[in-house]
Structure formats: C-alpha cells, structure tokens
C-alpha cells in the first residue's frame, strides 16, 4: 500500500506547470502524473518520493488536495505484461479509478500505480497471483 496525491484543478493553461514548479522548488521527486479531466475541471494524481512534504507544501500553497490509497505493482518491462495484469483485475471485478505507470529500469522493470475502489481486495488478488508490490517506504529511495 502507498499513497498518491489528488489535486483539484481547473482546466486552464499553466495549472499543471504550477504544481510541478512548486514541488521541484521543494526538491520533491515526481515519479508519475496522471490527469483525469471532466471538461472544465479535473483532478491531477501525483506520485512522489515524499508524500507528507508534497501534501503539506501544496496545502500551504492553497491547493485543494487529498491523499488517496494506491497499490503499486512491479511488472517486468515487456510486451503483454500490462494486458495480463488488467485481465486479472477485470476477472476479479476490480474497477480502476486511475492507472498509470513508470519505468524503473528500461527493459527490466516497470511500476504500475493502481487506484481501485476495492481495497484491500486488489492487493490480496495480486499477492495471490505472485505479483510483487512496492511498499510506501520504498518510494523514498527509488
């Protein structure tokens, strides 16, 4: 189990850039970003190396931000792996709110960030299929 941040933003130019600027000024490393939009507004999901610091920083800057539980699963970086993972989730009736990924080591390992309503079921299912999950404390030292 880990957490990423969810930030409410209006769909206007420069909004995302503003967030990344604030985080980079605080020396916070961003692993992945995902934007879900409903036209005029949306939410930005951000996975960082320092959840608490990122959360407090954004809150202080006046952002509407909350922490969301995610499951980070490690996959071999090769064709077909993503499909296999999603098939397992759908066959267990697990819907995803978000899903995005980042490569840890090219051609070797990727991390997929999953935000699902059915928590902790998602982690039980993945464990039972032999997947390795990335714990929150590992994020600080990737």
């Amino acid at each position: 189990m880990a957490y990423h941040l969810s930030i409410f933003v209006e769909n206007k130019p420069g909004k995302l850039e503003n967030i990344t600027k604030i985080l980079s000024e605080k020396n916070i490393n961003i692993y992945g970003i995902y934007v879900a939009s409903a036209g005029e507004f949306g939410v930005v999901k951000i996975l960082t190396n320092n959840l608490e610091k990122a959360y407090q920083t954004l809150k202080q800057e006046g952002f509407t931000v909350s922490k969301r539980k995610v499951t980070i699963v490690l996959l071999p970086d090769k064709p077909g792996e993503m499909h296999k993972l999603l098939t397992i989730l759908s066959s267990n009736n697990i819907n995803l709110e978000d899903c995005y990924g980042f490569v840890l080591e090219a051609k070797a390992q990727a991390a997929i960030v999953l935000e699902a309503e059915k928590y902790p079921l998602i982690e039980d299912v993945l464990h039972s299929k032999g997947y390795k999950l990335l714990p929150a404390e590992k994020l600080e030292e990737l």
Partner: peptide, 18 residues
C-alpha cells in the same frame, strides 16, 4: 468554489457535486 476541507480526491465525486 469547492470546499477544500471535504475534497476526497476523485473525479467522480466532483462530477457528482457538479
């Protein structure tokens, strides 16, 4: 304006509010 104290972080929640 949305209330930042009770923002729970999902797009679905926001569209429901809208």
């Amino acid at each position: 304006e949305v209330d930042k104290e009770i923002f729970e972080g999902t797009l679905a929640g926001l569209t429901q509010l809208q």
